[in-house]
Amino acid sequence: MAEEQFQNDIPVPDDLKNNIFITSLDKLYNWGRKRSMWPMLFGLACCAIEMIATAASRHDLARFGWELMRASPRQADLMIVSGTVTKKMIPQIVRLYNQMPEPRYCVAMGACATSGGPFKEGYNVVSGVDKYIPVDVYIPGCPPRPEALMHSFIKLQEKIEKQSIRTVRWYQKGDEVSIPVPMLGPDLVDMRKANEIKAQAATV
């Protein structure tokens, strides 16, 4: 490392010379975050089997520093929605997502979590988890291979790298925005659309 780059007024002791890095806080912060994601131990359906296979010896999620699956949403950074999201389950999924502390991320794993997949037309199926919670990465496949899941992690790491402390939502003023939990009525009621539903129901 060229010594002349560090020519400035700050005296550097001899034994610390060649040991100093200069970087931005964003880079350091994101570097740490992206290599220590804690996913939530949360499986829904077939894709969860591939998620477990990803965490197991052959594919070894620990290489990413992501192997620490937490059973509690309070300790998790990432929700991998691994399987078909049903109307009966979505209130719990939204509740779990609300309980995760920010920064929080969501990966929609597989065709079902992305769009409803082969079960889209089913009467108890939500056509994609993104109808309720924001999704960062979508993975196609039914189920996606472990390699595809790891690819999504790399994509998510790239996304994290681009975030800046100055602009991310969770360091701004104001409270965390939680998503209203849907209600199980005669059918699934999205409480954000309750007014529209009431108006529409009067006309049908």
């Binding site: 109307k87 889209k120 199926v125 209600m183 999205d190 309750a194 009431k198 529409q200 129901a201 049908v204």
Partner: peptide
């Protein structure tokens, strides 16, 4: 697209005069 075909733009359907505000859910 299924979402464009249905009046609720979602995979749901409600009976006439359904009022989400007065409904008590007991799943």
């Amino acid at each position: 697209l299924a979402e464009e075909r249905v009046p609720w733009q979602d995979n749901v359907t409600f009976p006439k005069d359904f009022d989400p505000f007065s409904y008590t859910s007991k799943p």
